[in-house]
């Protein structure tokens, strides 16, 4: 594996048709490569170069939609290259936020918790302690509105997906699928092992900011009791923020 490839060198630019281009920083999933994607994206968000319409940051690359009537491809690539070289991965580090998400684990809230524990020769309490013991980096959002691809799930609780996916998983379900963990932002079908439930809605169309977090932010899960879950749910219903944000 070329672990550090792209972390020091200049990015590679590739056209995607006539009005999109991809800026590629590497070929492996790694926080330092993702930080460069986030840094360039932050710089574009802050001060969009002429002709840039929209960006989609992902694990190792940034998709840039632009208007070829306003800026030439070569000129835009040059500008983005200069920005990226100047930026490095500093900006992303400065803008880091950690969202603390309350989760009620096990029982009716996470019916697969016993399986996840048994599969990994752990107790349920150990699974919860491991799951809540790390900050997870949001590498990218995609698949569904507000669905975060998180990195950093501890190897000790990796668990294969269900053989028969569920046809409906409620919004707010917290699950483990292979080496990944995450929150279902919308009720949807899915094959992940459900270990808990959060009253937080990563996607709420009626909220001022419909999507709670961005790529580059971090998530930390906090275990709560069924009683606290009920209280937080009621607060969430009333439109209150039931998550906590830590900066820096």
């Amino acid at each position: 594996m070329e672990a550090k490839q792209g972390s020091a060198s200049s990015p590679v630019f590739k056209p995607c048709g006539d009005c999109n281009l991809s800026v590629c920083f590497g070929t492996v999933i790694a926080p330092e490569i993702n930080a460069r994607v986030a840094a360039l994206n932050a710089s574009i968000q802050e001060k969009p170069p002429h002709g840039v319409l929209e960006t989609v940051p992902t694990y190792t690359s940034l998709l840039v939609r632009y208007d070829p009537c306003k800026v030439s491809y070569d000129k835009l690539c040059e500008r983005l290259r200069r920005r990226s070289d100047a930026q490095g991965s500093k900006a992303a580090a400065a803008a880091k936020r950690t969202f603390v998400i309350p989760v009620c684990y096990g029982g009716a809230f996470g019916e697969d918790l016993p399986f996840v524990a048994a599969h990994n020769n752990l107790t349920e309490a150990e699974v919860i302690a491991i799951h809540t013991g790390t900050d997870y980096l949001i590498y990218m959002l995609g698949f569904l509105p507000g669905f975060a691809y998180l990195g950093g799930l501890d190897k000790r609780i990796h668990t294969p997906r269900l053989t028969n996916p569920r046809t409906k998983i409620p919004a707010g379900a917290v699950g483990i699928g292979g080496e990944q963990t995450g929150i279902y932002p919308l009720a949807s079908p899915g094959g992940w092992q459900l270990i808990g439930q959060t009253p937080v809605r990563p996607y709420d169309p009626n909220r001022k900011e419909p999507i709670l977090y961005q790529a580059g932010d971090r998530i930390r899960f906090r275990a709560v009791s069924a009683q606290e879950y009920a209280e937080l749910s009621a607060q969430a219903e009333a439109g209150k923020a039931v998550w906590e944000v830590r900066n820096g």
Partner: peptide, 10 residues
């Protein structure tokens, strides 16, 4: 591939 962005018409 490692998941990346999908433009219209890809």
């Amino acid at each position: 591939i490692i998941s990346d962005g999908i433009a219209m018409g890809c």
